[in-house]
Design a protein around this nucleic acid. Sequence first.
DNA 1: TTGAAAGCGGTACCAG
DNA 2: CTGGTACCGCTTTCAA
Lengths: 341, 341
Amino acid sequence: MTPETRIEGLRRGARMTDVAALAGVSAMTVSRALRNPDVVTPETLQRIQAAIRTVGYVPNRVAGSLSLRRSNVMGLVLPSLRSSLFVETIQGVSDALGQNYDLMIANSGYTHRGEEAAVVAFLSQRVCGIVLHNTRHSRRTRRLIREMATPCVETGNLGADPIDMVAGFSNVDAGRAMTEHLIGRGYRRIGFVSLPVKENDRAADRRAGYLAALAHHGLAADPGLILESPPGLAGGADALVRLVEGGGGVDAAFLTGDVLAIGAVLEANRRGWPVPGRIAIAGSDDNEFQERLSPPLTSLRFPRYEIGRQAARMLTERVLGREVGPAVVDLGFQIIQRAST
Amino acid sequence: MTPETRIEGLRRGARMTDVAALAGVSAMTVSRALRNPDVVTPETLQRIQAAIRTVGYVPNRVAGSLSLRRSNVMGLVLPSLRSSLFVETIQGVSDALGQNYDLMIANSGYTHRGEEAAVVAFLSQRVCGIVLHNTRHSRRTRRLIREMATPCVETGNLGADPIDMVAGFSNVDAGRAMTEHLIGRGYRRIGFVSLPVKENDRAADRRAGYLAALAHHGLAADPGLILESPPGLAGGADALVRLVEGGGGVDAAFLTGDVLAIGAVLEANRRGWPVPGRIAIAGSDDNEFQERLSPPLTSLRFPRYEIGRQAARMLTERVLGREVGPAVVDLGFQIIQRAST
DNA sequence: TTGAAAGCGGTACCAG
DNA sequence: CTGGTACCGCTTTCAA
């Protein structure tokens, strides 16, 4: 590193008054020129713009936000940033926010404590809106957001008693729909594998939907066919083996959560079990890899990108003072039928 | 939505003076109690903490940042948030920042214009540090960051002339190392497939490394074996077919970028071409799926998580005024040898 | 159309 | 250990 490349430690950017002085006007006029150019004489506008360029002025939004008592920053809290699951949502939020808002992201580490910390941090930054993942939150989280009167959208699972607004889909419906789908294709001994349902309302809801569908068709729910699994490809592989070799006469399996279904298909391939000949396999959270598996995987597709967009849109509408339509928006889901079932 | 669930539009949180009044002290004492509790009488500390709880006080960092002339927010600019490639880096940055800093994320949409906009937004927020992806940026981006004297780490490709600091690895070395690896395993007609090298310095660097390795071993570079491909599984599939059916006598292929290599393996499977029997295949950006392919894919592993961590660490050190060691940190890469070569 | 003054909600500095 | 005062940089309000 040569000396020139080292950044001088102290000089911060120019202030609005510097620009004003150079342009021979007051700070107020510069302020107006920036946010309401029409109200300033074209000629002074020119001078101001020139001054801005020569001093390299970058507006200070911290000061602006303090003065306006509102920021242009939205906060997004996710369980983890590591999972590619949430990337779609981030992009959706980011796209819908556009150039007018900035985005802060924090991860909760899947804990209420972590979520609370993130929410407090965002509230301290006086974000103008918060997007929360899922609809289960600590009492303090809910209370804080309400007390600060910060617009909030919960995304993902549709749940009762929203803090403010919700954009997502019903996991009960999703679980039911996929099970109906399997029944409709003639399967009768259908296994259900999910992440542990304790502390996971999505998994619990999907399982509830699965059970509802079975009941609706007069099929008995066999506890031996309802499994919980740790996340990861290996978890899905293990679950598949347990189902097939468990003697329950299973003919189909719906694995939902993480990459469980992919792990199951890969394991079936490894063991030479034909899919769906030996067992049909359905998954969730459709993606390019599931589409390219052999056989391609029947899967639930959740509108994660759209959920992010919708959430951001609801927030910006609210910030602009417009009435947001219904506070709970169901974006639905799709069943993608492929060769694995 | 019942009336009670609607958030009251106006009331913002309590201010520090509210807390002070309730606790019977001055605002300054509250301020101290918050950031330097030891310097306050335990008894008054108690009263202040009680007051904070009863009024539901959440500190206003916007005001704090303005007063301190520095924020606790870091900015991260990525080409896209959609690609799971960058998730690791985000998590690394997030982990290293911990509870003491907040994180803002923006995407450039792969354009200089977009990157500039993101940088200006961050600079407006007076972030205390910026992480930029890669080492190619517009002149204005470079100038702005330097003029605002904002600490900056560029991540990914090691390049010349850093804005400030760099954390990453050498793509030239990576391209060379994988090519050497293939040569070492006895392959001689080695194809190279990447995204278009124009406007993509990583691809260009890896190709340069590939060519250097060939030259070093006295192997001729056959233009027919050097391909560019659009991103996506289909791109990799096409490239593989072009190589194998192109009559160049190819015996190995190094596909680098996006999911090119995965697409190639899946296509080879589909056509019944044994890998590495008919052609050996190597990829980059190792991940769980490459590991689980059949055959498992030999691949370059880049330390994306570590890069994020290191970048954030350099930034926080700089903010704390500590001398950061070398301004350019090479985190290297690994070659993961598997059955596909 | 432009400017002066008074905050926004904290924090540094110095006095007590 | 605690409090008063003067800002931080911008915007609102009200005059000119």
